[in-house]
Design a protein around this nucleic acid. Structure first.
Lengths: 225, 225
DNA sequence: CATATAATTGAACGTTCGTTTTAAACGAAC
DNA sequence: GTTCGTTTAAAACGAACGTTCAATTATATG
């Protein structure tokens, strides 16, 4: 029963690792906890992935590769539907937010790990972890920046760049610790309701993107070095 | 020279720990690296702080206590100036963002650690770390929620709660890894310019907060569990 | 069935971790 | 100058970590 369990074991390790990394971060998650959760031997990790870094790399590539592709696909699909006209900001935001949030709404608590992992990774200090994502993220980033430039020609480029960071940041924060948000808002916000989150974020951020910069002076009581 | 070095050593340890925790997270930072950076013996940490958790607790309390106070002070100051009228959303946002961003503009690279630490902490999975901040954060949160309710009576409470999370999330993201943002935007965004960041965030988020919810239906191609 | 390859296992490696222990050095008070 | 509480220092503790390796089992091929 080799061929049947081969993929099975690999997948089980990836699943367990994804959960552990999402819960405890890269340093906080131990391989021994992961293999216990996966029900395999410790050495199996090294047979399949070579090292803990290799395991993390595989975990990320399994999720972020398709995610990157879906990001680009959704955006291109919307652009095709727009028939050459600039996309409404709401659509661009939907293309930004739908793919990651859709992952959060997988069959009932099964794939919630990936969303927490996503949020975690975006803020993970580990340099090697960042390196894995840098290429993918930059391509997606550039695509959305270009779309926003087309739709909002009056907004300066630097402002758009800042605002993209704000969106990614808010998204990462939501995905990172949904439980915390639910507790802090006493249940008023339910991050598990991905459709609601999407609607809230599109409403909020589309208004922000359309705002013209006031170019206000730095606050008087604010000293910049 | 006991009395002179007492505060000195304590502070040196706190400074080194703040840097290490900000760079590597709680698990990633080792006490041996910290004491090497502080130039003290390993046991000194246990003499002053009892444990690694105690050290983290002290690091957080040193920074987040005053920050919480400044949050509340700034908000009350603005409310006093408004003389009973509802605060403009821009002012509320300024009260939310100014205190943490002001920390980022301390004398030239000296206190940048605290801002990275802030961002890091907001996404740190460690439960005990979260526990330390929970009470303080909830008080500040409630104050801003109340102010927003007063200024934006038409926006449903749940929407306001979501939007507060978006702001905290974006802020944490900016603070967490300023270097990454600078690289990704090829220098177009400079997180070290805290005054610029403040202006950008106020412009962007004030427009978002004033938006009325469209109460859109969940996307048709979006299946919620 | 025999054999080569792939997959899995248990045990151990050396290192580093947080923590504790023990003792020495210090300043102040009598 | 002795004593006492406080602070620093060195060394070691047990545990857990990532990793390796040799041996074993399972699978596929002839």
């Amino acid at each position: 029963m080799a061929k049947r369990t081969e993929a099975c074991r690999r997948t089980k390790i990836l699943d367990a690792a994804e959960n552990a990394f999402a819960d405890c971060g890269f340093n906080g998650a131990s391989l021994r906890d992961i293999v216990e959760g996966a029900g395999v031997n410790l050495a199996t990790v090294y047979y399949y992935f070579g090292s803990k870094n290799g395991l993390m790399e595989a975990v990320l590539k399994r999720r972020f590769g398709p995610l990157r592709q879906e990001h680009l696909d959704v955006l291109r699909q919307f652009e095709r539907e727009a028939k050459g006209r600039p996309l409404p900001v709401e659509k661009i935001l939907e293309a930004m937010l739908l793919p990651p949030l859709r992952l959060a709404s997988a069959p009932a608590g099964k794939r919630q790990a990936v969303t927490r992992l996503m949020g975690r990774i975006l803020t993970e200090p580990d340099e090697q972890t960042q390196e894995i994502l840098r290429g993918q993220r930059s391509e997606v980033r550039a695509a959305f920046l270009k779309a926003l430039q087309t739709s909002l020609p009056k907004v300066p480029l630097a402002d758009l760049q800042w605002r993209i960071e704000f969106v990614w940041g808010a998204l990462a924060f939501i995905l990172c610790n949904p439980r915390k948000i639910e507790l802090e808002t006493h249940g008023a916000c339910n991050p598990a309701d991905a459709g609601k989150v999407l609607a809230e974020m599109i409403d909020f951020f589309s208004a922000g993107f359309s705002a013209t910069a006031s170019h206000r002076k730095p606050q008087p009581n604010f000293s910049i070095t």
